[in-house]
């Protein structure tokens, strides 16, 4: 894999895709690697891109879509500019992870898996993040946010989001 880069333009992204396809010699076996890279590159898997990849990897478009829809890790819709993942694994669940998710859904007016209409924020959940000692917890972009109570945690998420939005920092 080429290390993650901050691609600026569509042309850059396109070139990066071409490069990764060449690296894998356009082999159909490399589909999952290529999809991972494409998601990193574009943030999600756009339709036209899947069609193009199918053509280049000599795979039927249906199969490429089938694989992309099978793994929950692949996104077929764009995420918000900021993204929050709530852990609902066993430890977090006991400590109120599910309630945290419900609280965030209430505060942002979107349900889990959705993106705010203005594209500023999206929310989803995950089974376990493997940092059970911090339970309950949420991850906003790349920052882990933890707190004693659900309300405090939800406040922290909102505050962090406000800071990020005001500085205009992209994840």
């Amino acid at each position: 894999m080429i290390p993650h880069q901050d691609y600026k333009t569509e042309a850059d992204r396109h070139d990066a895709m071409e490069q990764i396809l060449r690296q894998h010699r356009h082999s159909p076996d490399a589909l999952i690697e290529v999809l991972h890279f494409a998601q990193e590159n574009y943030g999600y898997l756009p339709r036209e891109l899947l069609g193009r990849l199918a053509e280049q990897l000599k795979l039927p478009p249906s199969l490429v879509y089938g694989v992309a829809s099978f793994y929950h890790g692949f996104r077929l819709e764009p995420r918000g500019r900021h993204h929050c993942t709530v852990c609902t694994g066993t430890s977090c669940h006991i400590k109120g992870g599910t309630a945290l998710l419900a609280e965030l859904e209430r505060r942002f007016g979107i349900s889990c898996g959705e993106t705010a209409p203005d594209g500023s924020f999206s929310l989803d959940s995950v089974r376990c993040l493997g940092v059970c000692d911090l339970a309950p917890l949420a991850v906003l972009d790349d920052d882990i946010i933890s707190a004693e109570t659900i309300d405090a945690l939800a406040d922290k998420v909102c505050q962090c989001l406000a800071e990020k939005s005001s500085t205009g920092k992209s994840p």
Partner: peptide, 24 residues
């Protein structure tokens, strides 16, 4: 896929939501 080599249909999604469909 195996005989016609077209691949119009495939399994979509997973688990209880799995269904046979075309792309998108």
């Amino acid at each position: 896929d195996e005989i016609v080599s077209f691949g119009a249909l495939t399994f979509m999604d997973r688990g209880i939501e799995t269904k046979i469909a075309c792309e998108f």
